[in-house]
Design a protein around this nucleic acid. Structure first.
Length: 248
DNA sequence: AGGTCTGTTCAGCT
DNA sequence: TAGCTGAACAGACC
């Protein structure tokens, strides 16, 4: 389940194909490549070269030399495979072939990933690891949604998924149910620091599953701080674990 | 073997 | 319009 750390690893994979000439594109999966008709993405890319790979939150995009940008999203189970053998069961939902035989593929069992030409990121918030203090204060507290739901909204701050959200709230010692417009300026700053620390650690340690709380996100799980049995509920539409004592 | 769960995004509803 | 619900995907797991 890719979150920001996994998306960053994917971006680093895309760095490996910069400069290569695109000779063919498989955009035949009409669901992953929606709203494009088969052949549309290919027509936009063939003959060009990728020149830079970018990421904001979980959204990836690749610049080309004068052609349109290619947007990529890993969905829930996707990854970027560079110069790997084609997968035996057709899990390559989108692929680009380069001159000389190299290949870049969006490998995604679930088909929840996306490939799109000229992606629009106007509705995507600033990257969770980069967002500044003033901007975070301004954006985050504009709604009374529960903290958990607000963290998951990629239009507010981009890159926090379900596991990372629980980790952030545990670090910040805040209840996932608390209304977001209830936080003081000091608490908003503390929440932002928890986001940046959790994201930074997750990137360093290799993924969103590496947090302190994550091993306890199971039946019978306990708070890593005070050993209290964790609460479990659906908040913001997602399974949420938290400590009822230290996250009051 | 069938039912439930998984997570993200988006459409559609109130 | 803010906020919630369910659809979409298809495999993992019990």
């Amino acid at each position: 389940m890719p979150e920001l750390p996994e998306a960053e690893r994917a971006r680093q994979q895309l760095d490996r194909v910069l400069g290569r000439e695109i000779v063919a594109v498989d955009d035949s999966d009409g669901y992953v490549c929606r709203p494009h008709a088969p052949g549309e993405i290919a027509a936009g890319l063939v003959g060009h070269r990728f020149v830079a790979a970018h990421r904001r939150g979980k959204f990836l995009w690749v610049e080309t030399d004068g052609g349109p940008e290619l947007g990529l999203h890993l969905g829930m189970a996707g990854r970027i495979a560079v110069d790997e053998e084609a997968s035996p069961r057709n899990w390559d939902r989108f692929a680009v072939d380069f001159a000389g035989g190299g290949r870049m593929a969006l490998r995604d069992k679930r088909r929840l990933g996306r490939a799109v030409l000229a992606p629009d990121f106007s509705h995507v918030g600033p990257d969770a690891a980069e967002v500044g203090r003033e901007e975070f204060r301004r954006r985050f507290a504009r709604s009374g949604m529960p903290l958990k739901a607000r963290l998951l909204d990629q239009g507010v701050v981009a890159g926090v998924g379900n596991l990372l959200a629980d980790e952030v709230l545990w670090r910040a010692r805040m209840s996932p149910r608390r209304p977001s417009d209830d936080l003081s300026t000091e608490e908003l700053d503390a929440l932002r620091r928890a986001i940046r620390a959790a994201v930074r650690d997750a990137i360093r340690l290799g993924g969103a599953h590496t947090g302190h709380l994550n091993p306890q996100r199971v039946a019978g799980g306990r708070c890593p701080r005070d050993r209290t049995p964790l609460e479990r509920a659906t908040i913001g539409g997602r399974t949420t674990y938290w400590c009822p004592v230290c996250q009051a």
